[in-house]
C-alpha cells in the first residue's frame, strides 16, 4: 500500500512539473521522459539480459507508425489500434529473436542492425501507407470519452508511461525472471544447468522490451504529431546504447543517469561546438569503456554499500 502511494506521489510530482513549463520546455521535458523510458527498457535488454541489439529504436518507430496507420489509414478505434500495434511489435520481435537466439555470438546484433536499416527503407518506399520520405502528418490524438488530451495533460500520460515501464522492469529484475536474464548474460552454460531455458529467456526478454519500446513509440506519435523516417534512424539506436553504457549498464539508475546526461548535454554543448555533440558522446563512450566499465553509476558505488542487500 505504501509503495502504491509512492508511485502515485511520483506520478503527480513529475506531471506537476509540466504545468510550470512553457511550450518549448514542456517539449524538451516530454522528450527527456521518452528517452528515459527507452533507456530503461533497452537497459533491460542489453544490460540485464546481455543481448546486443540495434533494433530498439526501430521498434519505437514501428510502434509510432503502427498506431498512426491503424488509427488514420484503417480507421480503427484507439484501443484496438494500440492492441494491433502491440501485436505487430511482438510478431516482428519474435520473427527476429527466435532464429537469432539459437545461434552463439553476435548474430542478434547483425540481424537487428539489418532490421533497423530495412525499417527505414520500408518507411521511405512505403508510398501512401507510410507517407514516404515526408512521413505522416496532420493527425491528432482522438478524443478519449469526448476529451482531447493536450498540453501538460499529455505530458502526464508520458509520465505514466515512464513510471509504468520502470515499475514493470524493476519488478521483473527483482524476480526469478530477472535473475534468469542475468544468469543467461553471465554464463549461459551454467544457467542451463540451473534449469533456465536459455533460448526462451532471451526471446521473452527481447520481445518484452521491444514491445515496451513500441508502446513508448505510440505515445511519442502524438508528441510531435508527425512521424517521418529521419526520426527513427540508426543514429538514435547508437545513442541509446551510449546512454546505457555511459550511465552504467545493468542498472536502472544507470540508464536514467545516461539518458538524462546524453539528452541534456547537447543543450549545454551546442553554444560551444554547434551540432557536433556526437563527437563528445563517442569520446565519452570510449573513455567510459576503458576507465569505468560500470558506467557513471559505478562511480557512485564507491560509497559504502550497506543497503545493497537486495
Amino acid at each position: 500500500m505504501r509503495s502504491a502511494l509512492g508511485w502515485v506521489a511520483a506520478a503527480v510530482l513529475l506531471s506537476a512539473v509540466a504545468f510550470f513549463l512553457s511550450g518549448y520546455y514542456n517539449d524538451v521535458y516530454r522528450k527527456l521522459l521518452l528517452w528515459i523510458a527507452l533507456a530503461l527498457s533497452y537497459n533491460f535488454l542489453f544490460g540485464i539480459s546481455g543481448q546486443v541489439a540495434f533494433s530498439h529504436f526501430a521498434f519505437y518507430g514501428i510502434g509510432a507508425y503502427a498506431v498512426v496507420i491503424f488509427l488514420f489509414q484503417l480507421g480503427m478505434p484507439l484501443p484496438l489500434a494500440i492492441l494491433a500495434g502491440v501485436l505487430v511489435c511482438s510478431a516482428i520481435a519474435l520473427i527476429v529473436a527466435i532464429p537469432s537466439t539459437r545461434l552463439e555470438g553476435f548474430y542478434l546484433a547483425l540481424a537487428t542492425l539489418a532490421l533497423a536499416q530495412l525499417f527505414i527503407v520500408v518507411l521511405n518506399e512505403g508510398g501512401a501507407v507510410t507517407g514516404g520520405t515526408g512521413g505522416l502528418v496532420n493527425y491528432r490524438l482522438p478524443a478519449i470519452f469526448g476529451v482531447y488530451i493536450t498540453g501538460p495533460w499529455y505530458t502526464a500520460v508520458i509520465v505514466i508511461l515512464v513510471l509504468g515501464t520502470y515499475a514493470l522492469l524493476r519488478h521483473l529484475d527483482r524476480s526469478w525472471f530477472g535473475r534468469a536474464c542475468r544468469a543467461v548474460r553471465d554464463n549461459p552454460e551454467a544457467a542451463a544447468a540451473m534449469g533456465v531455458n536459455v533460448a526462451r529467456t532471451k526471446v521473452i526478454a527481447f520481445t518484452l522490451t521491444s514491445v515496451l519500446a513500441g508502446i513508448a513509440g505510440m505515445v511519442y506519435a502524438f508528441v510531435d504529431n508527425t512521424v517521418n523516417p529521419p526520426i527513427f534512424g540508426l543514429e538514435n539506436a547508437f545513442l541509446l546504447l551510449f546512454m546505457v553504457i555511459i550511465g552504467g549498464s545493468g542498472r536502472h539508475a544507470g540508464a536514467i543517469v545516461g539518458a538524462v546526461l546524453l539528452y541534456l548535454l547537447p543543450f549545454v554543448l551546442s553554444p560551444l561546438i554547434g551540432h557536433h555533440h556526437a563527437l563528445v558522446f563517442g569520446a565519452l563512450m570510449v573513455v567510459v569503456i576503458l576507465l569505468q566499465p560500470r558506467g557513471l553509476i559505478g562511480l557512485y558505488d564507491r560509497y559504502p554499500r550497506g543497503q545493497k542487500a537486495h
Binding site: 534468469a180 542475468r182 544468469a183 553471465d186 554464463n187 552454460e189 551454467a190 544457467a191 544447468a193 540451473m194
Partner: peptide, 27 residues
Amino acid sequence: MRTFQHNLPFEGMSVLENVLVGAHTRF
C-alpha cells in the same frame, strides 16, 4: 543438479544471488 569442475559462477551477481539462480526451478 550439477557442479562444474572449473567453477562457472554468474559473475555480475552476489554470492546469494548466484544461489537464488540455483533455485530457478523452485519458482
